[in-house]
Design a protein around this nucleic acid. Structure first.
Length: 574
DNA sequence: GCCGTTTTCGGCCCGACTGTTTTCAGTCG
C-alpha cells in the first residue's frame, strides 16, 4: 500500500459521498477532494504517518486522518464498505451518463426504483422517466441518446493528446479566420499539456458572439450539437470528443483563458485568494467593489493577486500557487533554451524518412548548435545497421560536418535494450559512439522485476548516455512496460545517465510525473524529438512542455547546455 | 468534513445552458 492507494480510496469516498448526499457541492465530498489535493501537494508518503502528522496536512482533519489510518492498518474503511453496499457498482455506473447527475439518480431510485442500467432502459422504453417531477419528454429522450453513446463518450472517457491536438489546432485556426475575431486559443487540460483530455475548450476574443457560434455549429467537425447559446457552444466530433467554444469580449480574454485553462482546483485556490483580498474572480475578470482590477491578460491577474506568473503546465494545484506567492517557482526550461536534439534519425534507420543532409539542414534551420545522429543499432532487425554500415555512416557524418562547418554533429546510436538488459554490438564498438540513447522496443509483457532489472542493466553497462522513451508506451494504445521507477531513477542519478523526455505526442515518455520524481532524485533530463523526418522537429516544443509539467528547469536539461559544457558532460558517462 | 488577519461557528468558487418552470434546480466545467 502506498500514497497512491490512499488517494484512490479518498476518490472513491468522494464519489460515493456525492451520490449519498445527492450533490457534487456537498461540503463533505469537497472536503475529501481538498484532502486529496493537500496530500498531493505535500508530496509525502502518508502511509507511514500518525494522526497528528496527518492532520498537519492542509485539508486533512481528524475524521479523514482516522479513515486513512483505518485504511492503512486494515485495508478497509468501514464507511466506504457501508456506502458500497448502499450504492453498488451497477448503480454507480449510471452517474457516468452525460446529463445525469446525483440529484437525478436519487430521484430515479426513490420514485422509479431504478438500480442499474437495465432498469433505466426499461423505464425509458415504457416512457416512465417523463413522469418523474423535474424531468420531461425532452430529458427522457436526451438520456436515451446519451445511453446509446455511452461507450463512446461517457463522462470519464479521455482522449489522447495526440488525437485532440490536431482537432484543437484546426478549430482555432478556423475560428481565427472569422471576421471580428481578435484571438482564439485552446485552453483546458490541453493547454496544461495533460497527456489525455476529457474535452477541448476554446476561448475566443470577439465583440460579436453569434458569428463564432454559427461557425462552430456548422463546422465540418461538428457531428452533433450538445449546447448552443449566445456565448457558448458545445459540439461533439464524430469520435465523440466534445469541444466547448466560449466567446468573451477582447478585454476579458485573459480572465477567460485563465478560467478555462484551469485546472479546476487551481481556479478554486485563485478564487479563494481573491476573496481573501476582498475581491471577486470569475471568467470575466478580477473585481473589487464593481471595479475591474484586471482582466485583459493572465499576467496582470496573477500580479494583482500578488503572484508570479504561473505557466499553464504547472496549474495542477500541486504547490505552484504557494511557490508563486513566495517567489520560488522553478525557472522553467523553454524552447529557446534548447541548443540541440539528441535523438535524431535519418534514412540510415529502416524507419527513417529524411536523408542525413536534409535532417541536418532542418536542425540548422531550427537554430541548433549540435545534433546527435542516433540511427538504430543492429539488434533492431528491420530498422538497424550493421557495424560496416555504421562505420560508413560515421564517415558520412564527419564529412558533412566538415563541409557545413555550422553545426556540431555527434556520431550516435539508438541502442536496443534486450529483454535481459543487453545492448547492441560489444563494448569496444559501442565506445566508438559519441552519444548513445538506449531504449526498449520489444518484450513489453515481462514482469516488473525483470523489466526494472533490464533497464538498470542497460544503465550500468557504461555505454549509455540517456535512456530513451522509458516505458515504450503509446498513450491510449499501448501501456508502458511495468517498472519500479525509484530504483531506476537511483541508478540514473548514480551513473550520471540522463532520462529522455520524448516529445512525440503519442509517447511523452518519460511522463511528467516521472520527470518530477527524477528531478527530485537528481537525474538530468534530455529533451528529444526522436525525429524520423524533417517535419517532426516541432516536437521539441512538446518535450519542453512535458518537462515543464514535471517542473523541469533550464539547469536540469543537458541539451540546454552550451556545446562545450554539454560535451564535457556527455564524455563523463560512467 | 475542514478551517480561522471577521477563529471554535458559520461559511465553504462561480457562472452558462437546459429543461421545466413562471423563478429555479440540475448539470457541467
Amino acid at each position: 500500500m502506498n500514497t497512491h492507494d490512499v488517494i484512490a480510496m479518498l476518490w472513491e469516498l468522494h464519489a460515493l459521498t456525492v451520490l449519498d448526499e445527492g450533490s457534487p457541492q456537498s461540503f463533505k465530498a469537497r472536503a475529501y477532494e481538498n484532502a486529496v489535493r493537500g496530500i498531493e501537494g505535500a508530496g509525502v508518503d502518508v502511509t507511514g504517518l500518525g494522526k497528528s502528522e496527518l492532520t498537519k496536512i492542509k485539508g486533512v482533519g481528524g475524521s479523514t486522518a482516522d479513515k486513512i489510518l483505518e485504511y492503512v492498518t486494515t485495508g478497509k474503511v468501514d464507511k466506504i464498505e457501508r456506502l458500497r453496499a448502499e450504492y453498488p457498482p451497477e448503480f454507480v455506473v449510471l452517474s457516468k451518463i452525460p446529463g445525469v447527475g446525483p440529484k437525478t439518480l436519487k430521484t430515479l431510485r426513490s420514485e422509479l426504483g431504478i438500480n442499474d442500467l437495465d432498469d433505466l432502459k426499461d423505464a425509458i422504453a415504457s416512457e416512465r422517466l417523463r413522469t418523474v417531477s423535474g424531468l420531461g419528454k425532452t430529458s427522457e429522450e436526451k438520456i436515451a441518446k446519451a445511453i446509446e453513446r455511452l461507450g463512446m463518450h461517457g463522462k470519464d472517457r479521455r482522449t489522447p493528446i495526440a488525437e485532440a491536438m490536431p482537432i484543437a489546432n484546426r478549430l482555432v485556426r478556423d475560428i481565427e479566420g472569422i471576421e471580428g475575431v481578435e484571438r482564439a486559443e485552446y485552453c483546458g487540460s490541453l493547454r496544461r499539456f495533460a497527456e489525455t483530455v476529457g474535452d477541448i475548450d476554446i476561448t475566443v476574443a470577439a465583440l460579436e458572439g453569434e458569428p463564432v457560434m454559427e461557425a462552430v455549429r456548422t463546422h465540418p467537425l461538428a457531428a452533433d450539437i450538445v449546447a448552443a447559446g449566445e456565448t457558448k457552444t458545445s459540439i461533439l466530433s464524430r469520435e465523440g470528443l466534445q469541444v466547448d467554444v466560449r466567446v468573451v469580449a477582447p478585454d476579458q480574454f485573459g480572465a477567460a483563458t485563465l478560467y478555462f485553462t484551469g485546472s479546476k482546483s487551481h481556479n478554486i485556490v485563485l478564487r479563494q485568494r481573491a476573496i481573501d483580498r476582498g475581491m471577486l474572480l470569475n471568467e470575466y475578470g478580477l473585481f473589487a467593489e464593481d471595479q475591474t482590477v484586471a482582466s485583459r491578460s493572465e499576467e496582470e491577474i496573477y500580479a494583482a493577486l500578488d503572484l508570479a506568473y504561473i505557466e499553464p503546465p504547472l496549474r495542477e494545484s500541486s504547490g505552484e500557487v504557494e511557490a508563486a506567492a513566495s517567489g520560488t517557482l522553478p525557472d522553467l526550461v523553454r524552447r529557446e533554451h534548447i541548443r540541440g536534439d539528441l535523438h535524431y534519425h535519418t534514412t540510415r534507420s529502416g524507419d527513417g524518412r529524411s536523408s542525413l543532409e536534409d535532417m541536418v539542414q532542418a536542425a540548422v534551420e531550427a537554430g541548433y548548435e549540435y545534433v546527435a545522429i542516433t540511427d538504430h543499432g543492429e539488434d533492431l532487425a528491420i530498422n538497424g545497421s550493421s557495424r560496416e554500415e555504421m562505420l560508413a555512416h560515421r564517415d558520412a557524418i564527419r564529412d558533412l560536418e566538415q563541409r557545413r562547418g555550422d553545426i556540431r554533429l555527434l556520431f550516435g546510436c539508438e541502442l536496443n535494450i534486450g529483454s535481459d538488459g543487453s545492448l547492441d554490438y560489444d563494448p569496444e564498438f559501442r565506445a566508438l559512439f559519441e552519444w548513445s540513447v538506449a531504449s526498449v522496443h520489444s518484450h513489453f509483457d515481462l514482469d516488473v522485476e525483470t523489466q526494472t532489472a533490464r533497464i538498470i542493466g542497460a544503465i550500468s553497462k557504461g555505454s549509455v548516455n540517456v535512456i530513451g522513451h522509458l516505458t515504450g508506451r503509446y498513450i491510449g494504445r499501448r501501456p508502458g512496460i511495468d517498472l519500479d521507477v525509484d530504483p531506476i531513477l537511483e541508478a540514473l542519478a548514480m551513473t550520471g545517465v540522463g532520462l529522455e523526455v520524448n516529445g512525440a505526442l503519442d509517447r511523452l515518455d518519460a511522463s511528467s510525473t516521472v520527470v518530477r520524481r527524477a528531478l527530485a532524485a537528481g537525474v538530468r533530463l534530455v529533451l528529444s524529438t526522436d525525429s524520423h523526418h524533417t517535419s517532426e522537429l516541432g516536437r521539441m516544443d512538446f518535450a519542453v512542455r512535458n518537462a515543464q509539467r514535471g517542473w523541469g528547469e533550464r539547469s536540469d536539461v543537458a541539451n540546454a547546455l552550451p556545446l562545450e559544457e554539454f560535451e564535457a558532460w556527455a564524455h563523463n558517462r560512467s
